[in-house]
């Protein structure tokens, strides 16, 4: 399955055939049956957090899991794909804290809720999981596009209570132990964008400095200074600042106690919503 982030590339120029990511590991990948409902996101143009004042980014229609991948689902995945069990995983794909709190290779932590989001998994692991069920990770732009919504509108970024609420949630500890979907969904029917965990995106590592003046806004120094868009009317950027600060501090093999993921999928269907 192609993990194309862009529109169809000319396959003739592609010298190497795309191979399933999960195929890399055993060649006989067991596809896990998963019934996660997915929300249709029609996409559109949006102003990214890190872009210049006038640039808009286009997000193509896509499908997004309505909620994060759960402990129970990941357990099924490692049972079918032993290469991803904690005592088998290659160190190049996950650091030493990978599933460290699990009672065994195939047992969740004691007292863990099977419907709570899976955490302590690396980007490589998240990607392998997504591939095993014919999905992929959402891109940063896709994720942030959906994150703009509140319960009643697709873009709530200018509402002060929207951003206040997100920051409130971000300040609470131990939310990762709560089950998915127990809070109201947003405008797209997507749950838990802010109230449980941080989430991996496919291109989490695409925020950086560039020497190219066309993209001068990517200056990563701005993420560390108090400058940037922290004016009184731009409070929305506080929550986004936190997410971006986290993303730029991550490496693909990291596993973190409050970092999980959800899956996405391309769609050829264009619905008029």
């Amino acid at each position: 399955m192609s993990i194309g982030l862009m529109s169809c590339s000319n396959q003739e120029n592609n010298p190497v055939e795309e191979k399933s990511f999960a195929d890399h590991f055993s060649g006989t990948v067991q596809n896990t049956r998963v019934n996660t409902a997915m929300a249709y996101i029609p996409g559109g143009e949006y102003k990214p957090f890190y872009g210049s004042d006038t640039s808009l980014v286009k997000v193509e229609p896509f499908l997004l899991d309505e909620r994060p991948v759960t402990n129970g689902e990941y357990l099924d995945f490692v049972k079918s794909n032993p290469a991803w069990q904690k005592s088998n995983v290659k160190r190049i794909f996950a650091d030493t804290a990978y599933l460290h709190n699990w009672s065994s290779d195939t047992t969740l932590p004691e007292g863990a809720n099977a419907d709570a989001p899976i955490c302590n998994i690396s980007w490589f692991a998240a990607k392998a999981y997504a591939e095993s069920i014919g999905k992929r990770l959402p891109t940063l732009d896709e994720w942030e596009f959906v994150a703009m919504a509140d319960a009643t509108s697709p873009n709530a970024r200018s509402k002060s209570e929207y951003s206040d609420r997100i920051i409130d949630l971000y300040l609470q500890k131990n939310r990762q132990f709560n089950p998915v979907k127990h809070s109201p969904p947003n405008y797209w029917g997507v749950y838990n964008m802010f109230d449980l965990i941080w989430e991996w995106t496919d291109d989490f590592n695409s925020i950086l400095t560039t020497g190219d003046s066309r993209s001068g806004q990517y200056e990563d120094k701005s993420l560390f200074c108090a400058g940037g868009a922290t004016s009184a009317t731009d409070i929305l950027n506080y929550a986004a600042f936190m997410r971006f600060a986290l993303r730029t501090s991550l490496k693909a093999d990291f596993t973190v106690a409050n970092l999980g993921f959800r899956c996405a999928r391309d769609t050829v269907v264009h619905l008029n919503k």
């Binding site: 993990i3 795309e18 980007w123 990607k127 695409s206 950086l208 190219d212 066309r214 490496k251 693909a252």
Partner: peptide, 25 residues
Amino acid sequence: NESSTQEFANVLSMKYKKISPIDFS
């Protein structure tokens, strides 16, 4: 291909982004 390249870049902890049809940072 794109996914193998991205995987390799992530192993190296490289950051990269396609910023135009012909340019990467």
